[in-house]
Nucleic acid binder design. Structure first.
Length: 570
RNA sequence: CCCCCCAUCGUCUAGAGGCCUAGGACAUCGGCUUUUCAAGCCGGCGACACGGGUUCGAAUCCCGUUGGGGGGACCA
């Protein structure tokens, strides 16, 4: 047995008994239906880590065999997200490789050749049932309380009959003749899983549009792309016997399988993109009931031209396109839960945090360590330490990881992360700032949890004075309460600040502290009225840092403006 | 309804028959700190789903029950 350059014990561990290989190969094979979601990212990450750990190759393949579900340029988005996480593939789209092409839609002739062979060998056969005929058979089976299995014909239709059926407008598919034995999946995570022959039926290999089904394409491609290890979600476990049957029919080796536990929402439901829609829909319906929004304004905000689309969405018949959903969410002032990796990027999570956190969903190092860089994961990772139990996606813990990571990051990383955050968001007051200013912002915004916090805390420092709007509650609480005490303090502190010649946090801080002391006031009694004068809100970076950043002229100007505004208030 | 998988604090997990009066992290609660939002610091509460075996001994092995999840497509 040739184990290539791999340590013998590792090769044994990995079960390389029937595989000829130059190195081990894992693959991530998403279908292009949108952005990369958390579950997919975890699968991709584990594939990447296993390849790195065993010195193999990680490959990316786009499974675009469903012409109805494919979404324009979704493969680009998928690749963007993967790269953002740092999961660069060794073989796949754009990078190329010996298994090219890596879009299944470009490999139709390969599948076709194998279909010819299976048909000729009597291992597969044509079938002409319409979907309504199949539905009827399934319903009948259900009525009689038996499992539906496709009834294999006594004799297989000939090529000529298939031609005739096609000419007559019948759908023509190709089905695999399943063997009469069951299969044992030797899963590296779950152990041996036995599925009896009675559970398996003659499934479709080639659809009536000529495209292969998932099962068919995946088996052929894994063989030809020399994939040795298949890690995928547990939702595929029951598909594995089908794939093994196909491997048997085609004379292929069986790769090493590992079925990953599923990632669930905190409520125990499967984490899916629909989650986002549900939250936005609930907020929308509440707004409609409250008279705050109606159909026509929703259409305008979402940028939809078709009222029927909105109606269908409200009935739960369809999903709204991502951009429309986000616009609606923004206008409704709800934070739709992040589901796709891109959502986390837009909210201001760090990719290294996501990678770290996601790695812990179903894997652990075995000790108490849980902070890892991608590089550390590459060496610490192993198949044996993947768990069997489904994991819930705990946003609170992720948020904590992000908070500590931002706090621990060096200045360059903080700047690049903030820059990335700004670039994937709509342009705002911070968008055009230079690196030096971004670094300064990260410095004065201690304790931010997501990068969006930097924006919410300090955007007001970068707008024109006229754009400052004073928050009504804040004004009442900190300016007007106790017979306009806050405004009086503001006027007095303005006087004290006006005397300052040097305008830095180092000079401002003692001046304000002295002032507060002299007036027998807590710092808060001074800082809050001032903060509202500067930003219109009760939330901002440290008051001293805010004053310094704004500069003498702008700070005093804003306070004067605030005092004028305050005078007019009752 | 059928098939399959799973089962330790609220959550992610450590635990490979004695090291377990079950460890860590997040959350939570209490306190400290405090110019806002945060962050930080200290401390507390908190789990082996249930029932049978096996064994001198079980969170760990076996069986059953219950619960959760996945699958049952010309979707992947």
């Amino acid at each position: 047995m040739e184990f290539g350059g791999w340590p013998h014990n590792l090769a044994m561990e990995m079960n390389f008994t029937n595989v000829e290989f130059d190195c081990i190969r894992t693959r991530f094979a998403p279908s292009p239906t949108g952005y990369l979601h958390v579950g997919g990212a975890r699968t991709g990450l584990f594939c990447y880590l296993l390849a790195r750990r065993l010195g193999g190759k990680f490959l990316l393949r786009i499974e675009d065999t469903d012409q109805a579900r494919n979404i324009e340029s979704a493969d680009q988005k998928l690749m963007d997200d993967l790269r953002w996480l740092g999961l660069q593939w060794d073989e796949g789209p754009q990078t190329g490789g010996p298994g090219a092409p890596y879009h299944q839609s470009q490999r139709l002739d390969i599948y076709r050749a194998h279909t010819r062979r299976l048909l000729d060998e009597g291992k597969a056969y044509y079938a002409f049932d319409t979907s309504s005929e199949l539905d009827a058979m399934r319903q009948a089976a259900q009525r009689e309380k038996r499992n539906f299995r496709y009834p294999r014909p006594a004799s297989f239709p000939s090529n000529a009959q298939a031609e005739a059926a096609r000419a007559a407008g019948r759908p023509v598919v190709v089905r695999l003749k399943m063997p009469d034995h069951g299969f044992v999946v030797k899963d590296q995570i779950l152990g041996e899983v036995t599925i009896g022959a009675e559970e398996l039926d003659d499934f479709v290999l080639v659809k009536s549009d000529g495209f292969p089904t998932y099962h068919y394409a995946v088996v052929i491609d894994d063989q030809h792309m020399r994939v040795t290890h298949v890690l995928r979600g547990q939702e595929h476990l029951m598909n594995t016997p089908r794939h093994m049957a196909l491997q048997e029919a085609l004379g292929y080796r069986t790769p090493v399988y590992g079925h990953l536990p599923i990632i669930l929402n905190m409520d125990g439901s499967k984490m899916s993109k629909r989650e986002k829609g549900r939250v936005v829909l609930a907020a929308f319906e509440a707004a409609v009931r409250g008279g705050k929004m109606d159909e026509s304004s929703a259409l305008r905000i979402a940028g939809l031209s078709d009222a029927e689309m909105l109606a269908a969405w409200r009935r739960g018949d369809t999903q709204l396109e991502g951009g429309a959903l986000m616009r609606l969410a923004r206008s409704l002032n709800v934070q739709a839960p992040e589901i796709e990796i891109h959502d986390f990027r837009v909210s201001g999570y760090l990719p290294e945090v996501l990678v770290n956190f996601i790695a812990l969903l179903g894997w652990s190092a075995g000790d108490d360590r849980e902070k890892f860089t991608l590089e550390e994961l590459c060496t610490a990772f192993s198949l044996e330490r993947i768990g069997k139990t489904n994991a819930r996606f705990d946003r609170a813990k992720l948020l904590n990881f992000n908070t500590t990571a931002i706090a621990a990051a060096g200045a360059p990383r903080r700047v690049s992360a903030l820059r990335d955050y700004l670039e994937v968001n709509e342009p705002g007051p911070l968008s055009k700032l230079g690196d030096a200013m971004l670094a300064r912002l990260m410095e004065i915004n201690e304790g931010v949890r997501v990068l969006r916090d930097v924006e919410t805390k300090s955007a007001a420092l970068f707008v024109r004075d006229e754009e400052i709007e004073y928050d009504a509650d804040a004004v009442k609480q900190h300016w007007l309460k106790s017979d306009r005490e806050g405004l009086r303090v503001l006027r007095d502190v303005r006087g004290a600040l006006g005397l300052l010649n040097e305008w830095t946090a180092a000079t401002i801080e003692p001046a304000i502290r002295q002032f507060a002391e002299g007036a027998k006031l807590g710092l808060g009694k001074v800082a809050q009225p001032t903060r509202i004068a500067l930003t219109g809100k009760t939330i901002s970076p440290s008051i001293f840092a805010s004053l310094e950043l704004l500069g003498r002229e702008k700070s005093l100007g804003r306070i004067d403006r605030a005092l004028r505004y305050g005078e007019k208030l009752q």
